[in-house]
């Protein structure tokens, strides 16, 4: 018992540097943002700073702009993550089964992920531009994609998909490689066909990896900023919550209001995380107990 306590103390001591670093670089700014969000505070007039309680939250939550941007963000998130997952799974299976040129296939799949988001967003903006782009020429259309709401959403979401599917594919590939071959062979001997083997053996075993991949991508997609900023600047009703926060905080220098938006984004991210872990995690741990 005493030995265990001593070990535990050592463990905490060993963790301490990391914990302190995390507290300094993440907890402090986050708490400071919460603190700032309770003030009416304009960077231009620091003397006029005064405590307003939850007034900033009331004004954000009662603004149509917030709910509109929340819808936009969720739309982009769901739209991109669903397709990234399906495509990523296909790519992962291809990479897993590829016999010749395995390295080359993996490396080439990673190219879009290696490109800086702003550059990718700009390239696609030019590609969809009616005068400089190739997309219209290819499809025989004459459409100004980024000037209409739903087509602009399409361009933004497809840029996201193009860019981050490789990430999804790599994570899922890691998941595929943990599925034991013996299990698949045993299923085969028992008469399971390819589809049954995939849905009954491979997918359930990949569950934890799928959860991690989806969680990462969902949180990432929810915080989307660069692609929207480069392609539409949030116009045409494509504003994401991050852009709303940026406008309040960086352009208008309204620290109180901007911090309130940041805190609300954080709450959303937290909710997404909890929902995932509740939805996936408990189910999985129960399975393991059997």
């Amino acid at each position: 018992m005493t030995r265990r306590a001593a070990e535990q103390r050592l463990a905490w001591l060993l963790c301490a540097p990391a914990v302190i670093a995390m507290l300094v670089v993440t907890a402090y700014p986050m708490l400071y943002a919460v603190w700032l969000s309770l003030f009416r505070y304009d960077l231009r007039f620091p003397n006029q700073r005064r405590f307003v309680g939850v007034e900033n939250y009331v004004s954000v939550l009662s603004a149509e702009a917030w709910w509109q941007s929340l819808f936009n963000t969720l739309f982009i998130t769901v739209g991109s993550v669903v397709f990234e997952f399906l495509l990523g799974l296909v790519f992962a299976l291809v990479m897993h089964r590829a016999i010749i040129g395995r390295q080359l296939v993996r490396a080439s799949l990673l190219v879009p992920y290696g490109i800086i988001t702003v550059v990718a967003a700009m390239s696609w903006r030019f590609a969809f531009d009616p005068t400089t782009g190739f997309v219209n020429a290819l499809l025989g259309l004459e459409s100004a994609w980024l000037t209409q709401r739903w087509t602009a959403f399409f361009v933004i979401i497809q840029t996201e998909i193009w860019k981050t599917t490789p990430f999804m594919a790599l994570l899922l590939l890691a998941g595929l490689s943990v599925v034991p071959e013996d299990l698949l062979r045993a299923a085969r001997v028992d008469g399971a066909n390819a589809a049954q083997r995939f849905f009954k053996v491979t997918l359930p075993l990949m569950r934890p990896v799928i959860m991690v991949a989806l969680l990462f991508r969902t949180l990432d997609a929810f915080r989307i900023f660069d692609t929207v900023f480069v392609q539409t600047r949030g116009a045409q009703g494509t504003e994401s919550v991050s852009i709303v926060g940026y406008n309040a905080l960086v352009t208008r220098l309204n620290l109180g209001l901007g911090s309130a938006v940041s805190v609300l984004i954080f709450v959303c991210v937290l909710t997404i995380g909890v929902l995932y872990i509740k939805g996936f995690g408990s189910d999985w741990s129960r399975r393991r107990e059997h």
Partner: peptide
């Protein structure tokens, strides 16, 4: 809304 506007006026 005129035909004289550039189709990409909004951007």
């Amino acid at each position: 809304n005129s035909t004289a506007a550039d189709p990409t006026l909004a951007t």
